Lab assay of single mutants.
Amino acid sequence: EPLWIRPDAPSRCTWQLGRPASESPHHHTAPAKSPKILPDILKKIGDTPMVRINKIGKKFGLKCELLAKCEFFNAGGSVKDRISLRMIEDAERDGTLKPGDTIIEPTSGNTGIGLALAAAVRGYRCIIVMPEKMSSEKVDVLRALGAEIVRTPTNARFDSPESHVGVAWRLKNEIPNSHILDQYRNASNPLAHYDTTADEILQQCDGKLDMLVASVGTGGTITGIARKLKEKCPGCRIIGVDPEGSILAEPEELNQTEQTTYEVEGIGYDFIPTVLDRTVVDKWFKSNDEEAFTFARMLIAQEGLLCGGSAGSTVAVAVKAAQELQEGQRCVVILPDSVRNYMTKFLSDRWMLQKGFLKEEDLTEKKPWWWHLRVQELGLSAPLTVLPTITCGHTIEILREKGFDQAPVVDEAGVILGMVTLGNMLSSLLAGKVQPSDQVGKVIYKQFKQIRLTDTLGRLSHILEMDHFALVVHEQIQYHSTGKSSQRQMVFGVVTAIDLLNFVAAQERDQK
């Protein structure tokens, strides 16, 4: 057995438009009618409502009807409940999964919650491996369901041993009777949507819809739904939504950006999952974080739909894509998950301010006199920076000697690579993860907040409520011999709460 199987392995699926269902090699399930009293909570997966979006479509000038398939009504709160249950049931049916076995899954959280929910009911041990950027709410729900959680670096490539995929496979090879159901490759993922989600949409719309818009992560949702719609409703256009920084969209030119990270969760990847059939997507749109969270908040405030950030991405694209539809036509959007997962993220004004998705003037509360002053007023001194090749031991000596707790790590040209902190280095040394002679590049981390000289002290204040420091950066445009230009970030300084307090105190003292 291989040590790991690539999540982007070539698909062996034989589905073709027009091929009889009787030739399918898979076990198919028909939607079942729910009894009045459910035998367990797993029976509350599927049969989610279709809700008309009344205000947002009109606000953006849509002539067509805009409908939302509300997947956050599933038992675990997301569309991923469907595939989690289906993968477990299919693994039980073919004898792969037996009582007492362990389920391991690399996930952005929602599939993990679905699997942990099913594992709690069915009696399996469950280990979820997820990147650090995923919300604390997801972690809390997983723990409450009895799952064990392993976190991995957000910026690790999918084929790196440190990625959530790599760590999951390492655990599988170490733990007896453990299984990775593997949402990236498992046919049960798109089949769950082909058999149930798509049929529900067709039934709820009486077979009449002209466009379907869905955000894409593993691709199982859009693949399964689109294949069924292509068979039953061939005139329906399928629109895929991919965040900026991901590479799922086609044509490839759409993916060209210097951005590699994004805040919206559960969609987009740096590889093409095996289950994603991009041939059934008629057109791709890219979405960005700001519009995703703005539209998610709009869905909550104006439509009462308590959905997550990827739902915002989907609707932001839908109001663009559906401009081509006329009166009497219908566009369906998939709202994948609930706001429950993001209470401390985009639902929080403070978080939105820190990330730059909300401006101070958007909030009406009274601010102190210094709130709208610029960061450049602080008069920061030149920063202490270190090269990635310097040793951890030497870096600790320098920081202690100069009285700093942290320093930016830059390359020879001064471009920011990340940050090192005294606390992080000492804990890594004590844990045996690094040696004093190791290069400081081994303990770089990139989960820090950046701020510009033109940003306000109010925004800085919000950042420092949650973080010990902020890195002050400025952009530099560099022209190359080819005539092309590129933008790079340079370090201007490091600012802490002490710097802000000293500035405010000094100004008030001078005024007296």
Rank of each mutant, 00 (worst) to 15 (best):
L248K: 05
Q259Y: 11
A322T: 05
L276I: 07
Q302P: 03
G458C: 07
K283E: 14
K355G: 09
G245F: 02
T385W: 05
E258K: 14
F271P: 00
V420F: 14
G379C: 11
L248Q: 04
L373F: 12
L422S: 11
W371K: 11
R350Y: 11
T257P: 04
Q302K: 05
T421D: 06
V440E: 03
V339N: 07
D405H: 09
V491E: 09
I300E: 02
K446L: 14
D455P: 09
T395S: 14
D270W: 00
E401Q: 15
I451G: 08
I267T: 08
I463E: 08
L358R: 10
V491F: 14
F295N: 10
D455N: 07
G309V: 01
F293E: 00
V317T: 09
T391E: 11
L387H: 02
G379S: 10
T385H: 08
L453E: 10
D411W: 12
V375A: 13
T385V: 05
Q507C: 14
L305N: 01
Q439Y: 15
G304I: 02
F295I: 07
L358H: 09
V443A: 12
D270Q: 04
R374V: 08
K366L: 15
Y479P: 06
Q476C: 08
N341A: 01
D270G: 04
S381W: 11
A322W: 00
F404P: 03
P243E: 07
E252Y: 14
D467W: 13
G493D: 13
A382E: 14
K355V: 05
L306M: 12
W284D: 00
H480N: 12
Q511T: 15
R340C: 03
E324N: 12
L306V: 04
Q256S: 15
A407D: 03
P368K: 10
A321H: 12
E263Q: 13
F357L: 12
P436Y: 11
R488V: 13
L399F: 14
P408C: 06
N502C: 08
M343T: 06
M298V: 12
V275L: 11
V440L: 14
S485E: 15
P243Y: 06
Q326L: 02
Q329G: 14
I398S: 15
G245C: 15
S428T: 14
E397T: 10
Q476A: 09
I398E: 15
L384I: 04
